[in-house]
């Protein structure tokens, strides 16, 4: 399984978490995700995610002039988005616990052998 496949499932939740910190824009989200270790985001995967979240009304978008001049899209989270983020965190925690349990059990069995 490649990195992109693994990332697909969690990217929406992570983007939502970044936007939940405060109003932000595409370039900034990209930078935060990259510094957190999402290195393969360059190939335009972020923008369809933003559109999906916007269409699902989990985030809202407003257009305003950026300090550099061009009109920029600023994203902020909605109440629905906050609820969805909480649900994602709960699901993600449960899943990582399960995955960790499998890995630990596997390692223990390996040690016993």
């Amino acid at each position: 399984m490649d990195n992109a496949q693994l990332m697909k499932g969690v990217l929406e939740g992570c983007v939502l978490a970044v936007i939940a910190r405060g109003e932000t824009y595409g370039y900034e989200i990209l930078g935060i995700l990259e510094s957190a270790g999402f290195s393969d985001l360059g190939e335009g995967t972020l923008y369809p995610v933003l559109t999906r979240l916007d269409k699902a009304k989990l985030i809202v978008c407003r257009k305003a002039k950026s300090p550099l001049g061009p009109v920029r899209k600023y994203y902020s989270i909605t109440d629905e988005g906050i609820a969805q983020l909480a649900a994602f965190r709960a699901r993600y925690d449960a899943m990582t616990k399960s995955v960790n349990r499998i890995f630990t059990e596997g390692e223990n069995e390996h040690d016993e052998l």
Binding site: Y25, G26, Y27, L30, E34, D40, G42, E43, G44, S66, L68, G69, P70, V71, R72, K73
Partner: peptide, 26 residues
Amino acid sequence: YDLLFTAQTEQKAPEKIVGRDSAAFV
């Protein structure tokens, strides 16, 4: 335009924004 212009102003490497394959990015 906003994405590319901001990256250019901040002197970021194009690959960091676009990746290795610009066609896939588009």
